Amino acid sequence: MPTNALNHSHTDSPSHPFPIEQLDDLISPFLVTPRPGINLAKDYDPSFKASHLKKSKAKAQLKAGIKSLAKYQYLLYAQNTHSLLIIFQAMDAAGKDSTIKHVMSGINPQGCQVYSFKAPSATELDHDYLWRCSKALPERGRIGIFNRSHYEEILITRVHPEVMEQRQLPPHLIDEQIWERRFEEINNFEKYLVNNGTIVLKFFLNVSKEEQKERFLERIDRPEKNWKFSINDAKERARWDDYMTVYEDMFNHTSTEWAPWYIIPADRKWFTRLVVARIIYTKLEELNLHYPKISKEKHRELLKAKAILESNE
């Protein structure tokens, strides 16, 4: 029996590669390079789309890309050295849920986990603010998705100072330097993850205030979407400018070389999904994933097992 009888007939690269025609320019415009002075209103257009892309073509490319992501996820799981953490932050109705649903639709549920972080529980408040996110980190070989994340602790707590008073911190720690400390803590936390094999991808879905209003009205007008809307959503919308200010400060301080932010136009959901999928695919492609190589001894054992199986009915 030839010694290569157990060689895989397929290659490690996806059999359905992500369509690359004119898609490379879907990454760099949205990458937030480490720099001060980011201005969402001036620098990032929520309604932007690539001029060469039509909705129908984008949907076809996304469908093909999802197959490629599924193959890379399998390689990630098989190699079992890296993990991938994907963080989504956005204003309400920006499309986080639908983006996760569509982009990850081909992923094996056994290799992916999604956590939606709501207001912290009493138990979580008895720990540091990174504790609950640390517990939810993906294992090696797996993809973890955070729908909101530890970044809420430098967003909502700044827009609503009364929330910080509920965090059970010693009063002397709630001072003027707390946000600078938290920026540093988060950057160090993410660098630690990267240094231990976890790739960190951070997406901000940048929806316009006008589009958010339309989506809120749709949730009110369509009975099957009523459950997705509450009066608090409208109240939070009144703090739009405050949120934009703290988001910009967050980008300026936490878009790092090891874990940069991507600010994705979110007024057109079909374009949002394609860009997010393309960035995830590109990051997995850069890992040079491959199936584990087995030892000569293991190979001989497999050949023996194959011979036994073939000699018996």
Rank of each mutant, 00 (worst) to 15 (best):
K42N: 06
D43W: 05
D43I: 15
Y44M: 09
D45H: 08
D45E: 13
K49W: 06
A50E: 11
S51C: 08
H52V: 03
H52K: 13
L53T: 01
K54R: 09
K54C: 09
K54T: 13
K55T: 03
K55D: 06
S56F: 06
K59S: 08
A60C: 09
A60K: 13
Q61E: 06
Q61T: 11
L62C: 12
L62V: 03
G65F: 02
A70K: 07
Y72W: 11
Y72L: 09
Y72Q: 10
Y72T: 01
Y74E: 14
L76S: 10
L76F: 10
Q79W: 02
Q79V: 13
Q79I: 08
N80I: 04
N80R: 02
N80T: 03
T81H: 14
T81G: 11
H82K: 11
H82E: 10
I86T: 07
I87A: 07
I87L: 11
M91W: 00
M91E: 09
D92N: 14
K96D: 03
K96E: 01
I100P: 04
K101L: 04
K101H: 11
K101E: 14
V103F: 03
S105N: 10
S105Y: 01
I107D: 02
I107G: 10
N108G: 09
N108P: 04
N108F: 05
P109L: 08
Q110S: 07
G111V: 10
G111P: 14
G111I: 01
V114T: 13
V114C: 13
Y115I: 05
S116G: 13
F117M: 08
K118A: 15
K118Q: 11
P120A: 15
P120C: 10
S121I: 05
A122E: 08
A122F: 00
A122H: 00
E124N: 05
L125P: 01
D126Y: 01
D126W: 06
H127A: 11
H127E: 09
H127C: 09
L130A: 09
W131E: 02
C133T: 00
C133A: 13
S134D: 06
S134T: 14
A136H: 02
A136K: 11
A136V: 04
A136E: 02
L137H: 03
L137D: 05
P138K: 01
E139Q: 13
E139S: 15
R140W: 05
G141T: 00
R142M: 14
N147S: 01
N147W: 05
N147Y: 04
R148K: 02
S149R: 06
S149V: 03
H150I: 07
H150A: 08
Y151N: 00
Y151D: 00
E152G: 15
E153W: 05
I156W: 00
I156A: 14
T157M: 04
T157V: 08
T157A: 12
E162Y: 03
V163L: 14
V163M: 12
M164Y: 04
E165P: 05
Q166L: 11
Q166S: 13
Q166Y: 00
R167H: 01
R167Y: 00
L169G: 03
P170C: 04
P170M: 07
P171R: 01
